[in-house]
Write a protein that binds this DNA or RNA. Structure first.
Length: 923
RNA sequence: GCCCAGAUGGCGGAAUUGGUAGACGCGCUGGAUUCAAAAUCCAGUUCUGGCAACAGAGUGUGGGUUCGAUUCCCACUCUGGGCACCA
């Protein structure tokens, strides 16, 4: 009798492949279910056990839904554009396509071994021109659209042109660039084509804009904020400067409100929704203009607390504010210049982390309070950010802690406008307060006062109600090679789209580096290297990593369509992703951008759902369990964990392969690395070397990674699948520890043993199961079904174990029971289940069996074991017939000798009998 | 600083609506089998005291609500994640 998992798993994997078991197509007779994983970037290191965790969970769910009769779409592909392949190409000169294909082959091999039920006919790769043709197509649609705030949706730019021709832009309500002038139809019609294009670009959802970037001349590239450390590049340590660069941006801000509202209807975790909410950062308040004494200019501020306007005692503007030069008086000019310079030298990091170090400088200018007419000093300080709101605030030190601290530091007045509040020690940020000393706002509470204040501001024409968002438009250009090229060419500096059905393919280049002039790598391509070349030159930037992943779930529905992104019928049938599983690190990036693109495609009518992912589960990271040895300082002697305090030691990571149960195999250790060949050991009392351990991120450098491949060799993938689920709740971060894996392996072995004789022949009994056996099975059906419905993948394993243990003790290998049990098991352990299913005489895959129905009758019990508790403490249990009345139960309990003993002649105050639950006697 | 999670035996975890805390698995202890080991099987295993029956304590800490709290409320500590001079 041997459970030969290697043979079984190989057999079924090749069968699934050759018989196309998991390929699906639209079937109007069946209800659909779409289960999707966040597709991986195929890195060179291959998969470790942490990667497939989410895939296993989603595969189990997909298999479960299939058994429930759903038509399940469960595809997989690769997010194959990315930096590591490009970096490798720079170093070796090898085309990233080659590296990428190799890595994909390795991934596929590893994935196949785990027994996933993916429909591989639908595989997509974002770096495939057949795929990115449609990424480019979406960009073209964005370029050809603007956002209409009246209809609250994206519309074709042609409608905007018609409006410009008729009425100019005076009536147009659409998000556009800040510097867009108002023009008439006459002016519009008089402009030449290039001028018109320039104006349209200010409205397009994909537009060019000048943005500040971290430019590293030495590397010839733009760096992300976290790649810059104290003004130098993290890689290489070269100086980084701020440079203005013309880049493509997407007007995601137009969708800010819809992206926020849409969150309410999504079945996502609270924390992810919260993160997106904060990212979008909606705040309601008012814009208020403050006149400057003796100047024509006004400073416009944004505030969420217009109710505190009588508490303003100074103003603060950001060091980058455009009015600084105009308003600063002669006396302060030098100081202001010096201050602004010093701020600009600070890195973004530095500026953000210096919360305690309050700095600022007086500009010499005074603003006029719009209601009181009082003069208030205008300060410049770096705690005000140029990029948020208007880059200027009205400082209310009695109501805002940062203003308060600033006022204290520079000795500014702190007038109090709150009734019964003490603002001598800190600001009063309590929004329940009553306003005082504030003219028409006096005696109102804050929320009423805010409304009144805004009304007054609008009446006085000094400002208006304003909803402000923190979210900024997404920069869509990257100065890289290995990304989607833009379907764009330039003529006299004006961008134009290439023809409708064409796709710009990545041209070959001699090197994957920027040019000497600092142009992106694509500028190296000669005219004849491009498959399409129009105008003066093609766009040299490529799209960012998130372009391809923002819409891939749509392409899986119709991956081979050559005339459309996705056919309308297929998109209608498969619809939203019903279950999306992936890591929480994509909380704002990927998940927000795909929502944006889905909203947009919905507006244009290509799909009929607005939100891409109905239900989202974020799997927690699997952490590694590292082992350590302790070397005594300056020696080659290692001391066991128990005695390490007696010496001065250095902690060294040791490969977990050399350790079993924290006990080091000293011989293996000596052979591990030459420096340890002559190592000596101080052992513990059992003559063992005990290692220390720590739980940390799984990583090669910590020698704590575990590839799934070895485990599959040793235990089989059915065991691996079950074990990864058994580890704990899917969402939780949890340590990986192979110690427990033989527990689930044992479970499968026991199941095999139950259904196989000594000579490995399948044995099954055709006897009618007993009531006990039915009961055990149906208990299991109920628990497993309930647990899967609430995505409690770990407890399903426990319940299967409980059921099997019961069946074994009943010595039950009856056909009817095993038949249902193996279906329950099959989502977790599909290979062994297929094998036994075939032995039961079925020729079709178990994947399309029927999930067993739970029959409550089998669990019906006519007695209940009641815990009898005294003042809430359980003392003993009694069995009662369910038909027994409360009075009967009470009499029996009260006359029970144990009850009499526990009561010890005390008076019973109360007796609580909860039917089928508990009995509590209070005394 | 703000927001969101979480804290249960030696370990991973369970307890779905407030109703016997510790299911299931690992590990450990003892036993059977074996020449021996592996494998397998049986029994025990929250802590403290006791041979035992049993008693007491116990779900991060301190309070509260309740006949009854891991579960609800208040305050706090710690851990993880996210955001951050956001007006």
């Amino acid at each position: 009798m041997k459970y030969n998992f290697l043979e079984i798993e190989k057999k079924w994997q090749s069968k699934w492949r050759s018989e196309n078991t998991y390929s699906v197509s639209e079937d109007p007779k069946k209800k659909k279910f779409y289960v999707l994983d966040m597709f991986p970037y195929p890195s060179g290191a291959g998969l470790h056990v942490g990667h497939p965790l989410g895939y296993i969970a989603s595969d189990i769910y997909a298999r479960y839904k299939r058994l429930k009769g759903f038509n399940v779409l469960h595809p997989m592909g690769y997010d194959s554009f990315g930096l590591p392949a490009e970096q490798y190409a720079i170093e070796t000169g090898q085309h990233p396509n080659i590296t990428t294909n190799n890595n994909i082959a390795r991934y596929r091999e590893q994935l196949d071994k785990i027994g996933f039920s993916f429909d591989w006919n639908r595989e997509i790769r974002t770096s495939d021109p057949l795929y990115y043709k449609w990424t480019q197509w979406i960009f073209k649609q964005l370029f050809s659209s603007y956002y209409c705030n009246i209809d609250d949706k994206a519309l074709p730019i042609s409608e905007l042109i018609t409006e410009f021709e008729r009425n100019g832009n005076g009536m147009v309500k659409a998000p556009c660039d800040e510097n867009t002038p108002v023009f008439t139809a006459k002016e519009w019609n008089a402009w030449d084509k290039e001028q018109q294009q320039a104006m349209l670009l200010k409205y397009r959802l994909a537009y060019l804009s000048e943005t500040w970037v971290n430019w590293c001349p030495e590397l010839g590239t733009v760096l992300a904020n976290d790649e810059v450390k104290d003004g130098y590049s993290e890689r290489g340590g070269f100086p980084v400067e701020q440079k203005k660069m013309k880049q493509w941006s997407l007007r995601i801000t137009a969708y800010a409100n819809r992206l926020l509202q849409g969150l309410d209807h999504l079945d996502w975790s609270n924390s992810i929704k919260e993160m997106q909410k904060n990212w979008i950062g909606k705040s309601e308040g008012a814009l208020i203009d403050f006149k400057i004494k003796g100047k024509k200019d006004k400073i416009q501020i944004f505030t969420t607390r217009p109710d505190t306007i009588y508490g303003v005692s100074f103003m603060v503007i950001a060091p980058e504010h455009k009015l600084i030069n105009k308003i600063t008086d002669l006396k302060h000019k030098d100081e202001v210049k010096k201050y602004c310079k010093s701020v600009s030298l600070k890195s973004e990091r530095e500026r953000q982390s210096n919360i305690k170090n309050i700095t600022g400088v007086f500009s010499g200018a005074y603003a006029i309070h719009p209601f009181t007419g009082k003069e208030i000093p205008v300060w410049i300080a770096d705690y005000v950010l140029a990029s948020y709101g208007t880059g200027a605030v009205m400082a209310v030190p009695c109501g805002d802690q940062r203003d308060w601290l600033f006022a204290k530091k520079f000795n500014l007045k702190i007038p109090n406008i709150f009734k019964d509040a003490d603002v001598s020690q800190s600001a009063n940020e309590n929004k329940e307060s009553i306003i005082t000393n504030s003219d028409f706002l006096t005696d109102l509470n804050c929320s009423v006062a805010i409304k009144q204040a805004i009304n007054h501001i609008q009446k006085m024409d000094v400002g208006k109600r304003k909803i402000n968002y923190r979210i900024r438009d997404a920069i869509f250009s990257r100065q890289r090679y290995w990304g989607e090229p833009f379907p764009v060419f330039y003529k006299n500096g004006t961008p134009f789209l290439i023809k409708e059905n064409e796709c710009v393919e990545l041209p070959l280049v001699d090197k994957y580096l920027p040019t000497k002039k600092g142009e992106p790598p694509l500028a190296r391509a000669r005219k004849r290297d491009w498959n399409i070349f129009e105008g003066d030159n093609m766009e040299y930037n490529t799209m960012p990593g998130w372009a391809g992943s923002s819409w891939y779930f749509l392409r899986f529905m119709d991956p081979k369509n050559n005339t459309q992104l996705v056919s309308k019928g297929k998109a209608k049938y498969w619809g939203q992703v019903d279950l999306y599983v992936g890591g929480a690190e994509h909380a704002v990036g990927h998940l927000l951008y795909s929502r944006f693109w889905t909203h947009f495609l919905y507006d244009l009518g290509y799909i009929d759902f607005e939100e891409p992912f109905k239900k989202l589960i974020n799997q927690g990271m699997i952490l590694g369990r590292s082992n350590f040895v302790y070397r005594i300082l300056n020696t080659n002697k290692f001391v066991t964990f128990e005695k390490k305090e007696e010496y001065k030691t250095v902690k060294i990571h040791v490969d977990i392969e050399l350790v079993d149960n924290d006990i080091l195999d000293v011989d293996k250790f000596k052979n591990w690395r030459s420096e340890f060949a002559n190592a000596e050991f101080i052992l513990n009392k059992n003559n063992n070397y005990l290692c220390g351990f720590e739980v940390e991120k799984m990583s090669k450098s910590k020698y704590n990674t575990q590839a799934p491949d070895d485990l599959i060799e040793r235990f089989g993938s059915d065991t691996l699948r079950m074990y990864e689920m058994f580890l704990g709740p899917l969402e939780q971060f949890k340590p990986w520890d192979t110690k427990g894996i033989n527990g689930v392996h044992n479970f499968l072995k026991k199941f095999w043993k139950l259904t196989h004789a000594e000579d490995n022949k399948f044995i099954i009994s055709d006897e009618k199961p007993s009531k006990k056996e039915y009961r055990s099975l149906h208990q299991c059906i109920k628990k497993v079904t309930d647990d899967l419905e609430r995505f409690s993948f770990n407890t399903v394993v426990s319940n299967l174990m409980i059921c099997l243990n019961e069946l074994i003790s009943l010595n039950c290998n009856k056909r009817e029971i095993i038949h249902d049990f193996v279906i329950l098991l099959s989502p977790y352990a599909p290979h062994i289940s297929e094998e036994i299913w075939a032995s039961l005489g079925y020729r079709d895959s178990i994947s399309f069996a029927n999930w067993p129905n739970f029959i409550a009758d089998y669990l019906e019990d006519n007695t209940t074991t009641y815990p009898i508790s005294f003042n809430g403490k359980v003392r003993f249990t009694l069995n009662f017939d369910n038909s027994k009345s409360k009075k009967d139960i009470e009499n029996t309990v009260m006359s029970h000798p144990k009850t009499i003993a526990y009561l010890d002649n005390k008076n019973v105050k109360k007796m609580i009998i909860v039917p089928k639950k508990i009995i509590n006697i209070v005394f």
